[in-house]
Computed example of a mutant assay.
Amino acid sequence: MDTTAYLPLAAAAGLQQALDVTSNNLANGATAGFRASRLVFEDLLTPADPARGPIAMPQPRMSYTDTRAGTLTPTGNPLDLALGGEGLFAFALPDGGIGYGRAAQLTPDAEGQLVTAAGHAILDDGGAPVVLAEGTGLPVVGRDGTVSDGTGAMIARIGVYAAPDLATWQRSGESLFQPRDGAPEPELMEAPQVIQGAVEASNVNPITEMVRLIKIQRAYDQAMSVGRNHDELRRTALSKIGQRA
């Protein structure tokens, strides 16, 4: 394939990935604790042509997470927890791993464990699920993460972890993240800011994402139009070459 034909296809492929990422951001604009994804592009240089020199083609290199915090919304529900400043809650995953996230809208399960809507138990600072004994009332959660039952007895201390490299972590669904293989494990924060009765919204700005989506769609259409025009010119040239003199 000649370079002229490859350029619009390469651009369209990258824009398709950008379109998928932006669409996913928009779809999660109302998902508590969600962090938007972004793509990083780099120039891929073709081997130098003596007549034209190298040609640069943009290629998506990696995605990263926008770590800006979402707004905090008071709910009045004592089982809704949010974080002020930095930090992540830890949740037990079905495969035995640990997922980290900012959204903690909890409810007691049949065993008294505080779990998310997806069934992930929130973990204390020792890595164990937080369990409410039956009949002890709703918990009271302090700013430092300590959990007391309705009788005033301390149950546990919710683990809050520092994640300085969150932008490069992999997603594990339900607005949760996990460090990639080889990355250092997150460490407990000594002075977290746990906020009871509030939830952190997604950090996606719907208007900004919609504008980005429209720009990407237009750029994609333009790239495909260039490709179609090139194909038409090539067909015309071949038809004329094939004609008898």
Rank of each mutant, 00 (worst) to 15 (best):
A156L: 11
K215T: 15
A133I: 00
R157G: 09
V115H: 01
V140I: 02
G96F: 07
A201L: 15
R171W: 05
A167T: 02
L166I: 00
G159R: 10
A183W: 10
A198G: 01
G99T: 08
I98K: 04
P94C: 01
V141E: 00
R180M: 12
K215Q: 15
G96R: 14
S175G: 00
G112L: 05
Q196D: 09
V199G: 07
D144F: 12
T136Y: 02
G119N: 03
T116M: 02
S202E: 06
L188S: 11
G97S: 10
V130S: 05
Q193S: 14
V211A: 15
W169G: 08
L106W: 02
A167S: 12
V131W: 04
L138D: 13
G112D: 04
P129A: 03
Y161M: 03
D124V: 14
Q193G: 08
E190T: 15
A92C: 01
A156K: 04
G112M: 13
V194L: 07
P164E: 07
E185I: 13
A128R: 11
A133P: 07
G97L: 09
V130P: 10
E209I: 05
V211H: 06
L188F: 11
D149K: 05
G101Q: 01
V199S: 15
P94T: 03
V131F: 11
Y161L: 01
Q113F: 10
A153P: 01
D124L: 13
A167W: 03
I214N: 06
R180D: 04
I216V: 15
